[in-house]
Write a protein that binds this DNA or RNA. Structure first.
Lengths: 202, 202
DNA sequence: CTCTCTTTTAAGAGTTACTATCAAAAGGTT
DNA sequence: AACCTTTTGATAGTAACTCTTAAAAGAGAG
């Protein structure tokens, strides 16, 4: 109950934390490798655990579900900051475009590449696809909030929610396009799609 | 191999077919009742099977997954026909609005009510939500095709896919709104949202 | 270094959705 | 009644989780 634990407090750079991070990374990388080699559904959690040299229970302590190994957005918070940094007069969708372009431009090459691979995996596996879209919906809510803040309006305003929904829809559609044409530049597609949405009144 | 089976052909009005329909209905209704009473996740397939007086294996013969008991659109084919019946000059989104309004206007009151209940269930259960959105994506592809046909253009045209995606996105957003405000008229919301999309160039 | 507290991990058993197989039951035809 | 086909149920098995519990390992205090 006290705010000064008796013993063994969590040190930011302690062995414990480092080991945890290493274990997490190991599980993730072995999982992704196995998914690549033999497919998502064909890979069992047990195999992943074995490859990463941990027990299945440990796997589930790090990732609540098998899906979570694939699903984790690291881009959201960065993109949000960039969005909010745009000049106030800009159309929200325009601001979003700039934020998105900047975010991906700054990402490291390997990171972007892995992100593409994950997207492809997520889109092609039904189980993951559902989850991916779930994330999209969350993003839609977030978008509505950001738009509302920028315009000084209620984020529940129907017009705002409609446009935010359209943004999400374009994201989903472009993901489909990217699936059909694997070499397509997803960021460019997204930018072009969003450009059209700037015609929407707000 | 011949087109005249030796024995036991499928007669449209035979006992077999009627019994199958009855079984299917029984499973579905008992499942939905149990979901209502004790929640989706809390209800096991075994319970449903027992309530419907069939074996678990039979349950899975009728519905490949537990999710499928909830998920089944009966409206799509009707709405498609209505969409294609609209005059050619109309903006695709406008045609879609008319088709949607007519489809729901013709639905029987009980049917619409049950549909609302299913939507609410689907939106609130993560597992079903994923599936619902998957359906939405399928609908997006369908929409792009219908738009393409109507405009005499390639359905893979980026503009068309973008607008179709926006339609889907609005659907998702309005579903969210309907969740927040349970008494809202989903059809009216959808119509209002789509109205805004008519501003998009095509 | 050792004792002790805390966190992390492993092991085990159990639940549930789903698959596969195969024999029994019921529908339908001759 | 004889016979084929479809439907059904029983059984066994897999894999993703969940829960509980005890061992192992990190970290501070003496």
């Amino acid at each position: 109950m006290s705010d000064t634990p008796d013993h063994a407090e969590v040190k930011p750079g302690g062995l414990r934390e480092r080991k945890k991070a290493r274990t997490r990374l190991a599980i993730r990388q072995h999982a992704l490798r196995l998914f690549r080699e033999q497919g998502y559904e064909e890979t069992t959690v047990e195999q992943i655990a074995e490859a990463a040299e941990v027990s299945p229970s440990t796997f589930f302590r790090y990732f609540p579900t098998k899906e979570d190994v694939v699903m984790q957005d690291d881009f959201d918070p960065i993109a949000i900051a960039k969005f909010e940094a745009q000049p106030a007069g800009l159309h929200p969708v325009a601001a979003l475009r700039v934020a998105m372009r900047e975010t991906f431009a700054e990402a490291e090459p390997g990171e972007l590449e892995q992100w593409h691979e994950l997207i492809k995996l997520a889109v092609s596996v039904p189980e993951l696809r559902g989850r991916l879209l779930d994330d999209f919906v969350r993003t839609g809510g977030l978008t509505a909030e950001l738009f509302g803040k920028r315009l000084g309006r209620d984020p529940d305003d129907l017009a705002i929610r409609t446009v935010a929904g359209a943004v999400v829809g374009v994201g989903i559609a472009m993901m489909g396009v990217a699936l059909d044409a694997p070499d397509a530049d997803f960021v460019a597609l997204m930018d072009a799609g969003l450009a059209r949405l700037e015609a929407l009144p707000l």
